[in-house]
Simulated assay, not measured.
Amino acid sequence: MRPWPWRVWLRCVIDDALLRRQALLRIRGHSVAWVAPLLLLVLITLVDYNTSEKFRIISWIVLVPGIAAAICGVWTTAAFAVVSVVTYIVMDSTYPDEYQAGLPDFILVALGGVLATLACAIRVRGQERMLHMRDIAETTRRTVLRPLPPRWAGLEHAAVYLSADTEARVGGDFYDIQSSPHGTRVLVGDVQGKGLGAVEAAAALLGTFREAGYHEPDLATVAARLEIRMLRHRRHTTALGRDDGDRFATAVLIGIPGDGSDTVDIVNFGHEPPLAVGPDGVRPLPPGGGLPLGMGDLAENSAPPPLTRFPLARAETLLMTTDGVTEARDGNGVYYALDDEVARAVAADPRAAAPRRLVRLVRDGVLRHSGGHLGDDTTIFAIRRLEEGAEEGGLGS
């Protein structure tokens, strides 16, 4: 296998670099960022003191507040700026008059300290803004894509969400598991478009799914409720005068009966069909051929796609992805061969069919194949029935 290219590595590093840097500069909860500029101050002073007048480097002390500005707080940087000026005056005065640098270097050190303090204030303000935006994005992500217990509603599951926007944490992809008195329901989908409008549509669909998926005994009724919700959302955005009134969403709605039968019910709203992955290989489920959510009024009878029942062994995992996976291309424009890569991995090691391993496998494969350049938000979601007696959690919220 080819190693991850440097772009992928850089993307992963930049994402949390500032937060990790702050953690590295703390010991037992106390900041030690001041140590580096202090050592530089001491080093410059000692070298200047122990060399002749022909090797004057005391003016290099202007570097001290500059280093502090990059890693310390505003008040610490200001303190180093003052200490640097005082140290410069003391050290320069120890030389005879003809070797003193005097006013020009004093202005350099003083001005450097002022500029370093201002730069530090700008850096800290930007960093605080970035952390605030990350908190907002993380809250949005948890609202739309709520955390799920590792074993939930009789299912073992795993999920990975990769945003095409390196600064975003959530987009138009969505997934959820809803337990109910009528079995377990699963929804995976992708809202057309990007931005906050796509997030709004995803949140609307998930809210409807969580209510209808719990209360409605018939999966076809849940599908109809989702279609109606998308149409209502479109009418609302149109009434607001927004230009995304024609938005739609592809989705796969899955019903797992609670009677222990080895079957699943699927309603496919124009989405990529799931893959059944087990120790015996990979089995693509037939496409449903239905229209995406929000486009049901284009059908002759305006009815949602038909419900189809498929066999699914207890050892098989259902793998669902959004088009960020199927449309991932390499530098030559070749699409990612999901089925082939999964089949090879399962043939080499049947344990690769486990949800967590399967999701990691597809994630790594997509990133390698695309060189880290994702053309669309990417969701990889896998579910498998738990063994008898292994369930943790009951009827969900």
Rank of each mutant, 00 (worst) to 15 (best):
P5Q: 06
P5W: 02
W6A: 14
R11M: 05
V13K: 10
I14D: 12
D16M: 10
R21P: 04
Q22Y: 08
A23P: 00
L24R: 15
L25K: 11
V32W: 09
V32N: 08
V32S: 12
A33E: 04
P37D: 06
V47H: 07
D48R: 11
S52I: 05
R56T: 12
I58M: 14
V74P: 03
W75M: 15
T76C: 12
V82S: 00
V82I: 13
V85Q: 05
V86Y: 05
T87Y: 05
V90S: 08
V90L: 14
V90W: 14
T94Y: 06
Y95K: 09
P96F: 01
P104D: 04
F106Q: 01
A110W: 06
L111I: 13
G112Q: 03
G112R: 00
G113I: 01
L118G: 04
A121K: 08
E128G: 12
L131Q: 15
V144W: 01
R146D: 08
P147V: 04
P149D: 14
L162A: 00
A164L: 00
G172I: 02
P181V: 05
G183S: 07
D190I: 02
V191H: 03
Q192A: 14
G193Y: 06
L196W: 01
G197I: 03
V199Q: 02
E200C: 06
A212V: 01
G213S: 11
T221S: 13
A224H: 08
M230V: 11
R234W: 11
T250Y: 10
A251N: 08
V252R: 09
I256W: 01
G260D: 12
D265W: 12
G278Q: 01
P287D: 06
P287M: 10
G290I: 11
A299T: 15
E300F: 13
P306G: 10
T308R: 15
L312K: 08
L312F: 11
A313L: 07
T321G: 08
T321Q: 08
T322C: 02
G324E: 01
G324I: 03
V325E: 04
A328Q: 06
D330I: 04
V334Q: 13
D340H: 13
D340N: 07
E341S: 12
D349P: 09
L361S: 00
R363S: 09
G365T: 06
D377Y: 03
I383C: 03
E388Q: 15
E392H: 14
G394H: 14
G394R: 13
L395D: 12
L395E: 15
S397V: 15
